Simulated scan of single mutants.
Amino acid sequence: MRRLLWPAAVLVLLLALNVFFTPSFLAIQVRDGHLYGSLIDILRFGAPLILVALGMTLVIATGGIDLSVGSVVAISGALACLRISEDAGVLAAVAPALGLCLLLGAWNGFLVAGVGIQPIIATLILMVAGRGLAQLITGGQIITVNDEAYKMIGGGYWLTVPFGVLIVLAVLAITAFLTRRLALGMLIESVGGNAEASRLAGIRSRGIIVMVYAFAALCAGVAGLMISSNVSSADGNNAGLWIELDAILAVVIGGTSLAGGRFSLAGTVLGALIIQTLTTTVYSIGVPPETTLLFKALVVTAVCLIQSPSFRAKVFRRRGGTAPPAAVAEEKARVREEVPPDGVRS
């Protein structure tokens, strides 16, 4: 719970800043049979990022990284929209799109676990080639579709709630059950802590790695369906552009270490909401468009520094002579997690 304190505090601070500039920011109404308001928009537009970040969390927990999820987002939307433009049904369009995403994710896992290529290089290959594949599927054009059932995925509502939010809740619940109620989460953390030791202990680390990359690609595929259905079109060049960087930031802000090992699904969700709320804040307070990315980078940097126990310990030690007990306790806990009893890092 302590890991979630700082991300939650930052999210509350961003919401308070929006309320200062827009007093009605937190207001939620029911219009045309569905919930309406800035908070609902944050959840609706942040749903694809939350999905991608959930998949990225498990990949990072194994000590890897996946730079190809943005391209997978584009491929999924492109193939689904192409199938719908050919008068295929929604299921006939969604199934092959998600199936292809699973294969691409498994391919990433094979390159990492089977061939031994560094994760950043293995996924960089698909990041570049996948964007080209998406443009081949669309023929270099923007494919527009007009299917009400398909629009439901990313732009529809069910029981007054955005359907995309319900999909995220379902995926989050399933992921939390598999990783926290079953032994899968412990196996993932074990592989991330020391893959070779896990293999010697009888854990099929290669299979775990392939599985998490496939899961990350599947989450990216669903996110691609959301994004394309929300705008009723597929753009192989721009869909999902840089979403992989936002997903990595969300995971880091949520408290998961890039070195692998322990992970936090709740922290990842908070991190994704912080990024989406920050994007909304940029527009609400009138930050000039040409400085938007710089403003966002500065805020994310500040957030990462604030939640770093070692940074807070150094700052308070310099100012007051001693670090606050909470920061010292967090730093000691972090060291105990990273260094085993024999003093040798895994």
Score class of each variant (00 low, 15 high):
residue 119 P to M: 05
residue 15 L to H: 01
residue 292 T to E: 12
residue 114 G to L: 00
residue 308 S to D: 12
residue 261 G to N: 00
residue 12 V to H: 00
residue 327 A to S: 12
residue 33 G to I: 03
residue 77 G to F: 04
residue 28 I to W: 03
residue 36 Y to T: 07
residue 284 S to D: 06
residue 81 C to M: 13
residue 38 S to V: 05
residue 130 G to E: 03
residue 80 A to D: 08
residue 45 F to L: 15
residue 170 A to V: 15
residue 3 R to L: 10
residue 49 L to S: 11
residue 259 A to V: 09
residue 69 V to N: 04
residue 95 A to K: 09
residue 266 A to N: 06
residue 176 A to N: 10
residue 60 I to Y: 00
residue 251 V to F: 01
residue 137 I to Y: 06
residue 341 P to N: 09
residue 7 P to R: 04
residue 344 V to E: 09
residue 193 G to D: 02
residue 201 A to L: 12
residue 72 V to E: 04
residue 40 I to K: 10
residue 265 L to C: 10
residue 223 A to K: 04
residue 116 G to S: 10
residue 205 S to P: 10
residue 103 L to S: 09
residue 230 N to H: 14
residue 295 F to P: 08
residue 292 T to H: 14
residue 8 A to P: 03
residue 285 I to H: 04
residue 32 D to N: 10
residue 331 E to M: 07
residue 136 L to P: 05
residue 290 E to W: 01
residue 30 V to Q: 09
residue 153 I to M: 14
residue 290 E to S: 12
residue 34 H to G: 13
residue 190 S to A: 15
residue 317 R to I: 00
residue 256 T to K: 06
residue 304 C to K: 08
residue 67 L to I: 07
residue 333 A to Q: 11
residue 221 G to C: 10
residue 164 G to M: 13
residue 345 R to N: 01
residue 130 G to Q: 01
residue 291 T to V: 14
residue 150 Y to W: 14
residue 193 G to Q: 01
residue 282 V to W: 01
residue 336 R to P: 05
residue 77 G to Q: 10
residue 84 I to K: 07
residue 254 G to L: 09
residue 186 M to K: 15
residue 63 G to F: 02
residue 226 M to H: 10
residue 334 R to S: 09
residue 304 C to E: 05
residue 260 G to R: 00
residue 220 A to E: 02
residue 305 L to G: 09
residue 55 G to N: 03
residue 154 G to F: 11
